[in-house]
């Protein structure tokens, strides 16, 4: 495997795509966000149980490629316990990292494994899809979000 590929499909990503965490619907969920990528048909729903502004629990369901699934899996693990404002701030950091490859600070933690996707412009949308969905969910927006207007 060449280096770029190893950057894209890091072990953590392969692990999460083969055995996704929190991959189920959520009892007591009071928010959900849907993400759909019309180009490849990736389709996910992120479920949140929010207590006031705090995400108490998160899960997801749907189907798509390895990158999108691993991203959703890691996302659900990461946002638990975060406030709406923290999720919004994290979205901005993750978005920046996935499109530029630069890890701005320690805040992204484990999610740093997705820095490699910036070398694969066609795959940035896959990685960011569930993040759009979770943003819509914490912000209480209805209806599916699409990555169609995401610039490559």
């Amino acid at each position: 495997m060449s280096d770029d590929l190893d950057d894209l499909y890091q072990q953590v990503i392969l692990d999460h795509c083969k055995s996704p965490r929190n991959f189920h619907t959520l009892d007591g969920a009071n928010r959900k966000g849907e993400g759909y990528n019309p180009l490849c048909g990736d389709n996910y729903t992120v479920f949140l149980k929010m207590n006031g502004d705090v995400v108490e629990d998160a899960s997801f369901q749907g189907s798509g490629c390895c990158i999108s699934k691993a991203s959703a899996s890691l996302l659900t693990a990461t946002v638990k316990g975060k406030t709406k404002a923290e999720v919004q701030a994290l979205f901005a950091k993750v978005h920046d990292m996935m499109t530029t490859g630069t890890v701005s600070d320690e805040g992204v933690g484990k999610l740093a494994v997705f820095a490699g996707v910036h070398k694969f412009p066609a795959r940035v949308k896959c990685a960011i899809l569930s993040w759009h969905a979770v943003l819509a969910a914490v912000e209480g927006k209805d209806g599916p979000v699409s990555t169609e207007n995401e610039s490559d």
């Binding site: 590929l5 894209l8 798509g64 795959r123």
Partner: peptide
């Protein structure tokens, strides 16, 4: 089995093989 078409295409591309993955405008 268990490998999404887009992952197939991405890896093939890194090997110099240009494939297409997707719904091919046949949803």
């Amino acid at each position: 089995d268990d490998v999404h078409a887009h992952d197939v295409v991405t890896v093939a591309d890194q090997r110099g093989v240009a494939l297409r993955g997707g719904h091919h405008c046949n949803q």
